[in-house]
Design a protein around this nucleic acid. Structure first.
Lengths: 200, 200, 200, 200
DNA sequence: GATGAATGAGTGTTCATTCAT
DNA sequence: CATGAATGAACACTCATTCAT
């Protein structure tokens, strides 16, 4: 009814804002991976992002908020990964795919460091811990559902307990990640062994 | 005239010295587990050990030396754990024993924190990383030997590859540790699943 | 074609401008009283005024200009108070009136804080100090005149020196203000004592 | 009974400690008087004291603790001043003495500034406010006692109420201090007027 | 040998102010 | 004109380390 009113003042540009946040997050990820969360100063991060310290504080209210945002990013990525298990194609292939993706991610220089820093921080920040816990539970549920569906399609030994297997897979994923990231192995041997045990 | 002077260069009471170091290490483990390696100040640690800061520096030349010593302690404990697999009794029982021991350790409040801090620090300290890598390889070798022996005794499916299985077990152990420590589960379900897969 | 443009250089709606300044000043008084001049940020003040920081800077060129404006307001109020001494009615009653007004003002939560902040700032800003000094002298002169007039009307002991008494009254007013504002007393006892000494 | 045991480690030197604290306090008083409590940075103060910032923090745990200590000093000085009223000699002379001392103190460049800063800070720090309130009450009580004693000796109009007069004197003292410190007058006129009113 | 004291370098965070939109 | 965004400079405070006692 009312004509589109021009609000006074400079309009906000949500795209630029998001882009800015993204750039800061990327810089923060790099710094945290390299020096740890406590070791990476906001000065480091803002310099890596190419902005001033004060500008960083316009996008994130505190250093803690930054790590929370980083952790949320990581969580989103994990959930997307599990989603890939439910896609089309034979289950065995999809599982191998996902395990390979985990191993590949683990090979990225900063992946493990980030992972560890987030986990370590979670032990001290109840807020971060709660967020991670909740995400983990959602992930386990989705994983169990996917496994049950595979059993229904006859692609997975129906005598296995989906919930228990989901947990085991989650554990293996974590361990595989650390294994590869620490350079102990490339993950191929462990992946093959697991698929064999699952008769896939 | 002059009182009997201690000869310079001679170590004075090495027993007391070792005891002092041990106490400092224990205090440091507690502080690091609670606040992280960067978060635990040498003031915190020396206070927890009941000595002055300057005294701490007479036992350890730097804060970094402290974490190295802590990591060495942890490594020793892991190797002892694998050694339990090679003891007398049925293999299945021993494996369950060790997995239970891992889960129990993971339930200790500070275990995961310490674990994470050491791993995270290893990514930044080449010296620490080298130490851990070497220990890990020794551990994997011993584990593979133990598995092969179990196969030879007919206690384990001989078609499995001992080296690959050793890696998988190592991965599972790491993942199980994190799983339990983070409160996702108590480890029983995952342990049972693993034993079942191994037909044990 | 082009819409009617305002001539450059012409002040735009001076009434709105003054109103805006007044609102900012009120917000600033509240913030300064609550947190002190250094403690009150321009962000606080502009938020309290319901405008943006940049807009505040269009009404006042700096934070210092703001406190100067606040001090001018206060000065005006003091002069108005002295003016009430010269009004109609018996002098004793008027004096009691004014002293009561001072005590009442002192009871306002933010009055003393503002007073103190202005005084403290005056010690650092020569410009503010000069302004206050001049106002104080004008006030003392007016007060002495009022006292002399009261003596002429036979309402005040003619043996007292008007100028000296003006100073004493000014001192007492300041002290009374602080006394009441700090909650030491309600001012009644001190006021009564003073009137008794003056035989009023 | 037990022989004097040499405690291990470097013994503390309480004299040096006190001297250090005193020097820091003096530096802080100077800085606060010049720039205000919020305007004086700990860097300013430690530089003025000729020590490092970190050293300052070994004597005072926070900037707030510093101002509290300054306020305690001032309080002690005020109490000492009132004590001078109770000394030997005619009361009128003693009172004039004390008023002169106040005026002289007010002439010291930093006196008023310090006074104002403490008062302003008291409005924000409940702890400081409580300390000042308590000291003020003790001071008023001592003052009333002194006045009553003077009345008993026939040196002061016995019809005056000691408690009320104590309050008035306190108010006058505060006002006189501000009066002189702000350069409005030298205090002589106001002092004379007051003594005259008291028939001293 | 043990410790109190000292400190330079750094921490995360805030602020008054400017400028482009 | 109004405002979002940007920032250099500063802030209180902490820390790992050294050194004289």
């Amino acid at each position: 009814m009312s004509p589109p009113r021009r609000l006074p003042g400079r309009p906000v540009d949500p795209v630029a804002r998001a882009e800015r946040s993204r750039a800061i997050l990327a810089a923060a990820r790099a710094c945290v991976a390299r020096k740890g969360f406590h070791g990476a100063s906001v000065a480091d991060i803002s310099a890596a992002a190419g902005i001033s310290i004060a500008s960083l504080y316009q996008s994130f209210p505190s250093k803690d908020a930054l790590i929370l945002a980083i952790a949320e990013d990581e969580t989103r990525a994990s959930i997307a990964l599990v989603g890939r298990l439910a896609g089309p194609g034979p289950f065995a292939e999809r599982l191998r795919d996902v395990l390979d993706a985990i191993a590949e991610e683990a090979r990225r220089a900063d992946a493990l460091a980030l992972h560890l820093e987030i986990a370590a921080e979670a032990l001290r920040s109840p807020r971060l811990a709660a967020m991670l816990r909740q995400a983990q539970e959602a992930l386990l549920g989705a994983l169990a559902d996917t496994l049950a569906a595979a059993q229904a399609r006859g692609e997975l030994d129906p005598s296995l307990d989906p919930a228990g297997l989901a947990r085991l897979l989650d554990i293996v994923a974590d361990g595989l990640f650390a294994h590869v990231a620490l350079g102990i192995g490339d993950g191929a041997a462990a992946t093959a062994q697991l698929l064999r045990l699952l008769r896939l």
